Simulated scan of single mutants.
Amino acid sequence: MNEQRVAIVTGGSRGIGRAIATKLAAQGTAVVVGYAGGADAAAEVVDEITAAGGRAIAAQADVADEKAVAAMFDAAQETFGGVDVVVNSAGRMALSTIADLDLADLDRMHRTNIRGTFVVARESARRLRNGGAVVTVSTSVVGLQFPTYGGYAASKGAVEALTLILARELRGRDITVNTVAPGPTATDLFLDGKTDAQIDQLAKQPPLERLGTPDDIAGVVAFLTGPDGHWVNGQTVRANGGII
């Protein structure tokens, strides 16, 4: 076993990604906090982890840019000695009916959510140490199929399609590949543009009668990437409080 496991968390500067990065660090994993543009926010996450006694660095990368993603893996290798866990939490969402969706918004979502996931998965397949874990992030809307989420859900459906295929392709290396599909979760991305009434309605839908929190999702990811969750492989886990 490696002395210390090393994780790359894309989208690690805010929301669910930030909660995942700090959760993994609290469990003793060295973390590369990947970010697209929020350098200050990423630095705050690194400071939070190191202040608590953990090890972390920040690395800027557009997940759809294969050279930038390779450089992020290089930074993990050079600083911490390798990579054991990759969590691709970077994502983009634009809501609109299918009839009215601007195709430029569709292209931007698909570039980040599909191409970005594929690029990170490809680099993970090439670089992850044996015994590691890959977690991609989808959305429970793939199953819930809310109006105005057509373009977004389509991009995340592609993420789920990769999961079992990549798990099978990594046969023989003791690496797991899973997708976590959060339901409505109280992040800035989710809350932006919604009225209090809309938020309250969504919070009442799960039998647990609340919105998810970033920590709820981080706990699932920590399980899937840790020893207790290593027998779970090739799965999409709908972490949504029972909304479907």
Rank of each mutant, 00 (worst) to 15 (best):
N2M: 14
V6C: 10
T10S: 01
R14D: 03
G15D: 03
G15N: 00
I16H: 02
A19R: 10
A21L: 03
K23L: 11
G28R: 03
G28W: 14
A30S: 07
V32I: 07
V32L: 04
Y35A: 03
A36N: 11
A36H: 10
G37W: 04
D40I: 11
A41I: 09
A42R: 03
A43S: 15
V45C: 09
V46I: 12
V46T: 14
T50L: 04
I57M: 00
A68T: 02
A68N: 12
V69R: 10
A70Q: 11
F73R: 06
F73E: 00
A75N: 01
Q77T: 09
F80N: 07
F80A: 07
V87T: 01
N88E: 07
R92W: 04
A94T: 11
S96I: 04
S96N: 14
I98N: 15
A99K: 12
L103Q: 13
L103R: 12
A104W: 06
D105R: 04
D107G: 03
H110G: 01
T112W: 01
N113P: 09
R115I: 01
T117F: 02
F118A: 14
F118K: 14
V119N: 05
R122L: 08
A125G: 07
L128I: 03
R129A: 15
G132F: 08
G132C: 11
A133V: 10
V134E: 08
V134F: 14
V135C: 00
V137M: 12
S138K: 13
S140Q: 01
G143A: 13
G143Y: 13
Q145G: 14
P147R: 08
G150M: 13
A154C: 12
S155C: 11
K156W: 15
A158E: 15
V159L: 13
L162P: 12
I165P: 12
L166T: 03
L166Y: 05
D174F: 13
T176Q: 06
V177A: 03
A181N: 05
A181T: 07
P182Y: 09
G183D: 08
A186G: 09
L189Q: 14
L189P: 05
F190W: 09
G193C: 04
T195G: 04
Q201P: 03
A203R: 14
K204M: 08
R210D: 12
L211F: 10
T213P: 09
V220Q: 00
A222E: 04
L224W: 01
G226M: 06
D228F: 05
D228E: 10
H230S: 06
W231R: 00
W231M: 01
V232A: 00
N233S: 08
G234K: 06
V237P: 05
A239C: 14
G241S: 04
G242P: 11
